[in-house]
């Protein structure tokens, strides 16, 4: 496969995401301009100019009308996708680490860092009508997180819950009607760097600095599967059509220069969902992979790395022909 290399960022990629139909690919990096690309040919549609610092997170609603981004300039912004205009800006006390639209996009949630004397907080805002007034609106729900800070977040089923992944490795499911904990599990020992839902939303995969990625049930937070590597995992994504998980990671950028350059640590690694066994690797990045996303049709995937590149890979036929070897008796 000949990957498309998208060079729209000056600094490390922090998150990439496809829209629901997969024709657009969004990328956020530690520079201040999130990008949007046509996923088919890698043509850049535009950049969202306005943030004043690192972009940590982004999300697009299911109709591909609005984009939400959060970053190190202590703001969460809503954008019009068609024109790239900044519609509303929500100021917070510390940098915004995660942000997500609910599936219906009637609400959006974002979390802030515990920094500068301010606690880590979760905000839920009303996004039924997105215009300038959203900037001044009070959140419909907000609560403080007293223990370790939130490093990743997803919406649970039917937009009724939020699941947060924490720096200490905890997973907590919150009830949105009360803002109370429903479930709390601690299966990871280090920071949870990424969480991504399966296509039907019944399961999600976590990626953690403790060198593993794990598969959980969305409703009960029951641990289903575990994928082990020997490097910190920065991102994991589930294939929408096959029983495959792709893991991306590698050692921290700050440690790269102090260790030997052994090959094979910045690969995207493909695991079988059920058998938890690795069956393939794809090389390409010069640094650790920070974010991975499967195209909704499952025929290509994109990875964004610490090297600042986004690479879009269209799978070869050999990937689809591959059958995992197992004893059928």
């Amino acid at each position: 496969m000949k990957p498309l290399m998208l060079q729209g960022h000056q600094r490390a990629i922090t998150q990439i995401k496809y829209n629901r139909e997969g024709d657009l690919l969004f990328s956020a990096a530690k520079d201040s301009k999130p990008n949007v690309w046509w996923s088919l040919n890698g043509e850049r549609l535009g950049t969202f100019n306005g943030h004043g610092g690192v972009i940590w997170c982004l999300d697009v609603d299911w109709q591909s009308i609005n984009l939400i981004t959060g970053g190190g300039d202590s703001s969460c912004r809503l954008w019009d996708l068609e024109t790239g205009k900044n519609i509303a800006t929500l100021k917070s006390n510390s940098s915004v680490r995660t942000c997500n639209f609910s599936y219906s996009a009637y609400q959006a949630a974002y979390t802030t860092d515990k920094a500068m004397g301010h606690p880590c907080e979760v905000f839920v805002i009303d996004t039924r009508t997105i215009d300038e007034t959203v900037s001044g609106q009070a959140p419909i729900l907000k609560w403080e997180i007293t223990d370790s800070k939130v490093t990743s977040m997803i919406w649970g089923s039917l937009d009724e819950t939020i699941i947060t992944g924490h720096e200490a490795g905890d997973l907590i499911q919150w009830d949105l009607r009360t803002g109370k904990k429903i479930h709390s599990v601690k299966e990871h020992t280090h920071q949870i760097t990424d969480m991504q839902l399966s296509r039907d939303g019944t399961m999600f995969v976590t990626a953690s600095k403790d060198h593993t990625a794990k598969l959980f049930d969305t409703n009960s937070l029951e641990l289903l599967k575990e994928y082990k590597t020997e490097r910190p995992v920065n991102s994991a994504a589930l294939s929408p059509i096959l029983d495959h998980v792709v893991l991306g990671g590698g050692q921290d950028a700050m440690e790269v220069t102090t260790t030997s350059t052994r090959q094979g640590k910045f690969d995207a690694r493909f695991f079988h969902l059920v058998f938890e066994e690795e069956f393939g690797r794809v090389k390409g990045h010069f640094g650790p992979i920070n974010s991975l996303a499967f195209h909704p049709d499952g025929k290509s995937y994109a990875s964004g790395g610490e090297d600042g590149y986004v690479r879009v890979h269209n799978f070869d036929q050999s990937y689809f022909d591959y059958t995992f070897d197992y004893n059928r008796e």
């Binding site: 496969m1 000949k2 549609l45």
Partner: peptide, 24 residues
């Protein structure tokens, strides 16, 4: 729009390139 506002239709070689062949 944004920094791509002045790009012509089609991929701009400054931002989009085809990388070397890689295999799984």
């Amino acid at each position: 729009f944004g920094d791509s506002a002045s790009d012509k239709p089609g991929p701009n070689p400054a931002t989009t390139n085809v990388a070397e062949d890689v295999f799984m």
